[in-house]
């Protein structure tokens, strides 16, 4: 077993779909235009921010979706040059832009729709200056990228940028292998679900339901 298994717990009962986490991610990582590593999904409704069901029996629920940092990732196995790897020490799935040959095999292999994105052109930015942390690797044309759990922040002992700004305080980050961590306690005391468990990837993102 890896020493650590870093993971996230997201309380769907409290998510208010404000997209603060998505924006924080975008700013912190200086994401190019139209590129989102973390997004808010409306569960059930046909469009964003619409309820599911028929009046008066309506319900509305939201969740956020980013790389699931699976314990058994489908993407790392298929990369022909090992540009995407799971770091053994903490289980974070990383992407090396300098190595990626742009074959997009990892996108085809990942069961979680849309969490990996390819830069189809030279990255463009709506702002004339870069945002976020200077330690974030610069974005490249024709490579695949995705959520890194803010690897540059992990190196400084900080949690990913999407955790803190959540106004509803429903995002938690920590070591799932440590039974005393906040995330471990939450999933031992609350009902949770992981996405697409039947695919056997064992994602490290837990959704409290």
């Amino acid at each position: 077993m890896a020493e650590q298994r870093l993971g996230m717990v997201i309380d769907m009962k409290g998510c208010i779909a404000c997209s603060s986490c998505a924006m924080a991610c975008k700013i912190e990582n200086n994401l190019p235009d139209e590129n989102w590593w973390n997004r808010v999904l409306t569960v059930g409704g046909e469009n964003r921010d619409t309820p599911s069901g028929t009046y008066p029996n309506l319900s509305m629920e939201s969740m956020t979706l980013a790389c699931q940092h699976c314990e058994n990732p489908a993407c790392t196995r298929v990369c022909p040059v090992g540009a995407t790897v799971k770091r053994e020490e903490d289980g974070v799935v990383l992407q090396d832009y300098d190595k990626c040959i742009g074959c997009r095999m990892c996108i085809a292999a990942c069961p979680y729709t849309g969490v990996r994105s390819f830069n189809w052109e030279e990255p463009k930015y709506c702002l004339p200056f870069a945002t976020g942390d200077a330690d974030v690797p610069s974005h490249q044309k024709h490579v695949v990228e995705k959520c890194t759990f803010c690897n540059h922040r992990l190196a400084k002992g900080e949690a990913p940028a999407c955790i803190e700004p959540c106004p509803a305080r429903v995002r938690f980050f920590g070591d799932l292998n440590d039974p005393s961590s906040e995330v471990s306690k939450l999933i031992s005391s609350r009902k949770y679900q992981q996405l697409l468990v039947e695919r056997g990837t064992n994602p490290s993102i837990y959704y409290l339901v």
């Binding site: 196995r77 298929v78 990369c79 022909p80 090992g82 190595k99 074959c103 095999m105 490579v143």
Partner: peptide, 21 residues
């Protein structure tokens, strides 16, 4: 189809044998 054909040499240098590709 490749985004970075100039990096093709990596297929030899960093070959990941577990990849069906």
């Amino acid at each position: 189809d490749l985004g970075g054909p100039l990096r093709l040499w990596e297929l030899v240098a960093y070959a990941n044998i577990s990849s069906p590709l």
